[in-house]
């Protein structure tokens, strides 16, 4: 069999205690789905689609190829359900299968396009992330804030988005490389960063958030005033 999981490159290598705590639940879902339980299958799809997508993003496929890989991976899991009983093995199997299918499409070379940091910032810095298993409340607040940051980022001028995406890239981009890629003097990167972050704080997506959270903390007037003045 060519689809053997590779533990060394598994996203769960050195798995956290939370992963083990949910192992039983996942084993239950997998065996229920293998027995034909549609709800268990839907739950597996909801839990692991982010993992599959994170692997796809790291290969920088276009949306059509991404959709094809994603569909192929879930069709393959349907074929393999009866053989995947251990949840840790499931995550590894999904990541490995996704990686192989991405590689296949890249090699077949159809419809792939060069990546453009202006269009596709998410893809440019996407990384292989394990499934998120933190507490739901904390998740919700963090998810809201992250969505607000992404929305605010999307409202920035292209030049700011380009600069900030280079500044937050992992691994980090050097100032020299940023200066070269953006055709700007190294000395102006710092001031440009400060200006772009100010615009981000003042973007409609974050301004709404600032108003709501500062009211709750009883210091709304100052912040709102500062935000308004900054525009």
């Amino acid at each position: 069999m060519t689809e053997r999981p590779d533990p060394a490159t598994s996203p769960e290598a050195g798995s956290a205690p939370e992963v083990q705590a949910t192992a039983e639940v996942l084993a239950g879902l997998v065996s229920a789905a293998a027995d034909g339980d549609e709800f268990a299958w839907a739950e597996l799809v909801r839990r692991y689609t982010p993992l599959v997508l994170s692997v796809i993003r790291s290969h920088r496929l276009n949306r059509t190829d991404a959709a094809d890989v994603h569909q192929t991976v879930w069709l393959r899991l349907v074929e393999h359900l009866g053989r995947v009983r251990e949840p840790a093995a499931l995550a590894t199997w999904l990541a490995t299968t996704t990686r192989r299918e991405c590689y296949r499409l890249v090699r077949v070379g159809r419809r792939t396009q060069p990546f453009d940091p202006l269009d596709d910032v998410e893809a440019s810095i996407g990384a292989l992330l394990p499934p998120d298993l933190t507490a739901p409340d904390e998740n919700l607040l963090r998810a809201e804030r992250r969505q607000a940051l992404r929305d605010g980022f999307g409202q920035l001028p292209a030049r700011c988005r380009e600069l900030l995406s280079l500044l937050v890239a992992d691994p980090p981009t050097s100032y020299r490389e940023i200066a070269e890629r953006l055709g700007m003097p190294i000395g102006s990167i710092g001031p440009s960063q400060a200006r772009c972050l100010r615009k981000l704080r003042n973007s409609p997506a974050l301004a709404a958030f600032v108003g709501a959270s500062s009211d709750a903390e009883g210091s709304g007037g100052d912040r709102d005033g500062a935000v308004a003045a900054g525009r």
Partner: peptide, 26 residues
Amino acid sequence: LRELGEALRDPGPPPEEFLAAGYAAF
């Protein structure tokens, strides 16, 4: 800047059509 980096690396909820394709595979 650090939070922005985390937000951009976290792509948010998966697009509905991707979830639908996953459900349909069953």
